[in-house]
Design a protein around this nucleic acid. Structure first.
Lengths: 229, 229
DNA sequence: CAGTACTGTGTCCGGCGGACACAATTAACG
DNA sequence: CGTTAATTGTGTCCGCCGGACACAGTACTG
């Protein structure tokens, strides 16, 4: 598993030349997931696209879990390069870049959840985020937790905005129906949504600014403390 | 679907008395998911526990998707009651309550992701969260987005801390191995993790405080603006 | 040239969600 | 009170899934 994600490929000696490579398999999977969603990615489906037999894939990848892991790290890719910026601006562009990556491959929201083995690209994203906070005066754990908060926010907004399925309208209509018939049970929610006036869709930036405000407050407090001591 | 989640049950007329109810089915599913995880919940497995035939379930629920939805709303339950508090403290206890709910039924982290039809309990959670911000001076959309940010943070921390599988140790060891052999590729991340000193596990409160700090700053800014105008 | 390691193929399995026809039950109606 | 019709749970069947395993062809090594 680690070997796969980190590209440790032992050189081949005897035997027929492989007709396909791990990268080609992953790319085929990505292609399918991009168009038809992650659920459409089955061993059979990937094999048909190459085209080889389904069991041929198992010569290059131990199972579907590992295939999805390789697909994910390959699809998310490395974070884009940017000129050096102050930490706040750096984190903001970092967050928008991450959102863009999720927008490009919506199925990454499904495949990169929970405790799992991380690939090099995903780790690079984390490293790049933490780098922005290196000179902030926060402790290592605080830097880590800060990036975690930002990541979860970006993920959540992406999940809310990026409409994977076509049930979008149906869900919204159902919610509207419920909120009109059962408004009495959810007074605060109803009030908030009626004054909200529909889809402002600025959730990403709003939450981002709040989190960054909170971080800035902590960083400033630490700086004051350091200069005073 | 809406009828199921919202308990609209039409009264029965002719025919044999139902041997099982929707609630019993959902409870059986919850029981299985709590012990063996959400993946162990199959129609066959749920039916065996009741015990009835698998196809009997389809008389009460249209499909597995709907069953999981009913299970989820039933398992998360209504948010606990608390005496009135200032908004910040209210949101903090609300967040901890939500975390506790996820800790009680870890599979809720899997089953309640993405755009979906919300049940009454889940909506009550949202309503209760927004209620804390009703008199904050924030707009309805801002109140909504604030709760969204808090929810995503709690979810993310729960996913990080609550160990569903037994691969925990294996993953950590693999990550440690990689960070030692490939430390040069991830300098900032390595530095942050080495100074962090392992599992402080205060991620929930840290992020919570930062987000609440950010919200407080916005609320205060609005108040100043209002009093000045 | 012989041996051997490696690749892709074909077949098979258990389990999954779900469609459909059927038998059994029970309330409503003449 | 008997008949009818609606509703319940059962059994069988299907296609798809991930994966195990034996087998045949290929290409390098001695």
């Amino acid at each position: 598993m680690t070997e796969l994600l980190w590209g440790r490929q032992q050189q081949r000696s005897r035997g027929p030349k492989p007709a396909i490579t791990l990268t080609e398999i992953a790319e085929a999977g990505i292609r399918i997931a991009d168009i038809e969603g992650l659920d459409a990615v089955s061993m059979q489906r990937v094999a048909d696209d190459l085209p080889v037999t389904k069991m041929a894939l198992y010569r290059h990848v131990p199972g579907k879990t590992e295939l999805v892991a390789v697909m994910s790290d390959l699809a998310i890719g490395p974070p884009p390069e940017h000129p050096a910026q102050p930490w706040r601006q750096a984190l903001k562009t970092w967050a928008f870049d991450l959102y863009a990556a999720f927008a490009k491959h919506p199925w990454l929201l499904q495949s990169t959840i929970g405790r799992r083995l991380l690939g090099p690209n995903e780790l690079t994203w984390m490293d790049r985020g933490i780098r922005a906070l290196t000179d902030s005066g926060l402790s290592g754990g605080e830097q880590f937790d800060s990036i975690l908060v930002l990541t979860s926010h970006v993920r959540n907004i992406a999940q809310q905005t990026i409409t994977t399925g076509l049930t979008e309208e149906h869900i919204n209509r159902a919610l509207a129906d419920i909120l009109t018939t059962e408004a009495a049970r959810f007074p605060s929610l109803t009030a908030a949504l009626t004054t909200a006036g529909g889809s402002e869709n600025q959730g990403l930036e709003f939450g981002l600014d709040r989190i960054l405000d909170g971080l800035e407050a902590l960083i400033n407090a630490r700086k004051d403390c350091a200069s005073a001591g």
